[in-house]
Nucleic acid binder design. Structure first.
Lengths: 205, 205, 205, 205
DNA sequence: AGCTAATCGAGACGGTACGTCTAGTCTTAAA
DNA sequence: TTTAAGACTAGACGTACCGTCTCGATTAGCT
C-alpha cells in the first residue's frame, strides 16, 4: 500500500520509541487502568519526550486505543469446521481480553468495566478516535463473520442467516455483561451463549 | 420512609430544587452530552447553589444517572401473548432511548455512543454509583425476563431456555451496536434481532 | 473608591494566600531570577492550588510584577530641602533595587540585567500587563517629580525646567546602565549623575 | 583575520544563505516582533534548514541581535561643530530606530517596548550574547562619546565633563521612555532632552 | 576517479514551562 | 440547617517553543 518509493526525508522516526512507549503504556494500563495511564508518566518511563509521544498518538485516548489494539492482535480464528466449537473458542478469547481489561487497575473485588468503558467514552469525545476504534472492531469482527459465512456455506447454519446479527448477539451479550450488568464472562458462559444463539429459543417441534 | 419522629431543625430543603435541577440536567445532557453536563452550569441554570446540588446527588455521575433513570421511566412491558411481537416492541423502546442518548451533544454526523459510555465509565470509578447503575438495569431487565418466562410457561419458548441469556443476546446486540460498532439501531433491527435469536442459526431440518 | 457598600457574597478570598504566594514569589525571584520563578513551584511552596494563584495573577508576568511592586513599596521620598542630596538619595535607592534585581538568579560575575528586562519583555507580550507595569512606574515617578517641582518652586531649580525630562535623564541613565551597557550603578554614580544633570554640560562663563 | 593558509575542506557554506536568512528575519521581526521571530519559520521562509541557520547564529537571540545590528548600521555621526544640533540629530536617529522596534509586531495602539526588551532579556540568559549586545552598543556609543569629546576640546562643553555620563543621560532618557514609561520619543523630544542636559537644571545666576 | 570532509534540507527528538480544565469541597452571610 | 455565592484543592492534560540530532544527499578539495 504505502510501500516506499517516495524517498523519505528528514530524520526517521525512532523505531524503538514506538515500541518502548507502547510497552510502558500496556504495563501502566493493565496495572492501573485508564485513569492511571498518564501520558507524562508513560513518556518519562519510556525515556522519551512528551512531544515524541504526542506526535504518534495525539491524545491519551489514542494511546490507550493503541494499547488495546496491541493486546488484541490475533490475526486469525481457527476454523475446525465445527462452528459451535469455533465460536465458543472465539468468544472465549474475547472474554479473556475483557476480563483482563476489567481487572486493570480495579479495586480488588470490583466488577468494574473500567478501561473498556473509558475507552468508549474517550472515543465519544473525539470523532477521529471513535473512527479508529470502530475500525479496530470491524477488523476483528470481519474475521468472525467470515467464519460464520463459511459455516453457512457448508450448510451448518441456515442459509438465510445474517452473520452480522448472529455475531452481535454473541459478542453483544459478552459486552453487555461486562459493561452493563457486571455479570461474569468466561468460557462456560461463552458455550451457553453459543448454544442459545444457535439453537434458538422457540420450541422445537 | 423517613416520616416522623426525629424532628428536623433548621431550614427545610427547598421543595422545587430537586425538580428544577433534574430538568436542567436533562436539558443539558440531551443538548450537549455528558461532557456538557457541567455541575456548575446545572446549578447556575437551576438557580441553585452547587452545594444544594451536591447535597442531593453526590457526584456528576449520580446526577447523570438520575437523568437517565428519569428518561427511562416506563413501568411495564405490554404482554400481548405474542412473545415475538412483545420483545420487538420492548427492544424498540430501548433502541429509541439509546438513540436519544447517542444524539446528545454529538456533532451532526457523529455516531458516538456518548453518554451511555460516559456513564459506564463514571460508574467504573465509583463503586456506589456502579451499584445504583446496575440496579437500574436489573430493575428494567427483570420485567423483560418475566415476560420471557411467561412465554416459556405458555409453551411458546423452549422449557430449557435461560431467559437471562436470551435477554443478553437481545439487549446486548443493541448495546453492542451503539457502544462498539456504531451501527444504527431501530425497530427494524429489533425485529430482525428477535427473529434471529428466537429461530436460532442452525439449519432447520 | 470601591469602599464597600455592595455586600460581598460567597467565600471571601483567602487573605493569607495572597501574602504567602507573594512571599514565596519574592524569595524565588530573588534567588533564581525570572526564569526560576515557576508558578507551579510558587503555588506548591505557598501551599496553594495553582488555580488560586492564577485567579489572582493571571500569568507569571503578573506575579513577577506584583513582586517588583512589593519590593518597591516606599511611599515617600525624604525632602530635606537640598534637592541635590534628595535626588541622590532617591536615585541611590533605585540603584539598590536595580542591583538586587540584577543579582537575582544570575551567575556569579554576570552583569546581566535579568529580571528587569524579563519583566519588560513579558509586558511586551501582554498589553494589560504592560499597562499595570507602566502605572507602577508612573506612581513611583510622580513622587520624584513632585520633589523636583518643589525645588523649582523654592527657586533652587530653574523655573522653565521640565521636571519629567530631568527625571528621565536621571532614572534613564541608571536603567541604561543596567539594561543596556551593563555598567555598574551605585551611590557614587548617582551623585555624579545628579551633578551632571543639575549643572549642565555647557561651559560656565 | 582567518584568511588563508588552513585549506578548508568539505562543502563550502552556501553563499546566499546568510543574507536570505537575515532578510527574512528582519521582515519577520519587524512584522511580528521578537515573539514572531520563530527560527523554524525563518528557516522555512529562507528556504534553508534549521541546522544551516543555527550554524551561523547559535540562538534566536543571536539572530535577533544580528537583525538589530543590521538595522543600526550607520557608521558615523555628522559633526557640524554645533554640538547641540549634532546630539539632537544623533538622538533623533536612535529614536527612529527605537520606534521602529516598538512598532514591530505590536497591536495597533500598543506602546509596548517589544523587541528591545526581549533582546535584553535574551541576553540576560546568555553571557556570550550579552557580550555581543554590549559590544554593539559600545561601538555605537563610542562615536557619540568622541563627538562630545571634540566639543569639549573645542571649549563648547565644560572641560570637567564626563562624556559617558552625558551620553547616558541622553540615550538613557530615550530608552527609559521606550522601555519603562512607554512615553513617545521623537525629534522634538530629542531636542528638549539635549537642551535640558546641556543647560542644566540649576537656576542660572 | 575515488576519498574525505563539511554542508545542506528535512524533520524527528529532548526538555520543560505554562496555563487550562474540571470535579468536588469549604467558607462566608443570610434565610 | 439549608441556601446562594464563589473561592478553594487537586492534578491531569495538552501546547508551545527552542535548540539538537539523525538521516540521506551534495559539493568541494585532496590523493
Amino acid at each position: 500500500m504505502s510501500s516506499g518509493s517516495e524517498a523519505r526525508r528528514g530524520r526517521p522516526r525512532s523505531a524503538g520509541a514506538d515500541e518502548r512507549i507502547i510497552r510502558v503504556a500496556i504495563e501502566l494500563l493493565l496495572a492501573r487502568g485508564y485513569g492511571g495511564l498518564s501520558p507524562d508518566e508513560v513518556a518519562e518511563r519510556a525515556g522519551v519526550a512528551k512531544t515524541t509521544l504526542y506526535r504518534r498518538w495525539p491524545s491519551k485516548g489514542h494511546l490507550a486505543l493503541a494499547v488495546v489494539a496491541r493486546l488484541q492482535e490475533y490475526d486469525e480464528i481457527p476454523d475446525t469446521g465445527d462452528i459451535r466449537r469455533d465460536l465458543t473458542v472465539y468468544l472465549g478469547e474475547i472474554a479473556v481480553a475483557l476480563n483482563r481489561m476489567r481487572l486493570a487497575g480495579a479495586a480488588e473485588g470490583s466488577r468494574s468495566p473500567g478501561t473498556v468503558a473509558e475507552l468508549v467514552a474517550a472515543a465519544a469525545r473525539d470523532d477521529e478516535l471513535d473512527r479508529l476504534r470502530r475500525e479496530l472492531y470491524e477488523r476483528r469482527n470481519a474475521l468472525a463473520i467470515a467464519l460464520i459465512e463459511r459455516a453457512v456455506r457448508r450448510g451448518q447454519l441456515r442459509p438465510d442467516l445474517d452473520p452480522g446479527v448472529l455475531l452481535e448477539q454473541l459478542a453483544g451479550a459478552l459486552y453487555y455483561r461486562v459493561l452493563i450488568t457486571g455479570a461474569p464472562v468466561d468460557e462456560e458462559y461463552a458455550a451457553r451463549l453459543v448454544a442459545s444463539a444457535l439453537d434458538g429459543a422457540t420450541t422445537a417441534e
